[in-house]
């Protein structure tokens, strides 16, 4: 019975965290372009990706 006091809250908190992560992703439009996301992994030009990421990062400031 005492173990339940710890394990049940842990299970709930873990579930809630993933639920929050999903809502965060949904709000950040990460489900807008699933086809593109699936294809992006095939783009292997690293310089370009770094450049794009740098652009993204710079813009979010």
């Amino acid at each position: 019975m005492t173990s339940l006091v710890i394990t049940i809250p842990i299970a709930l908190v873990m579930g809630l965290v993933s639920l929050a992560a999903f809502f965060w992703a949904l709000r950040r439009d990460q489900f807008e372009d699933l086809e593109g996301a699936a294809n992006r992994i095939l783009i292997d030009d690293e310089d370009e990706m770094e450049q794009a990421e740098a652009d993204d990062g710079q813009d979010r400031i």
Partner: peptide, 13 residues
């Protein structure tokens, strides 16, 4: 395709 995406994003960049 992925190639087109890369080309378009790079070309515009």
């Amino acid at each position: 395709c992925a190639g087109c995406m890369a080309k378009v994003e790079r070309g515009l960049g």
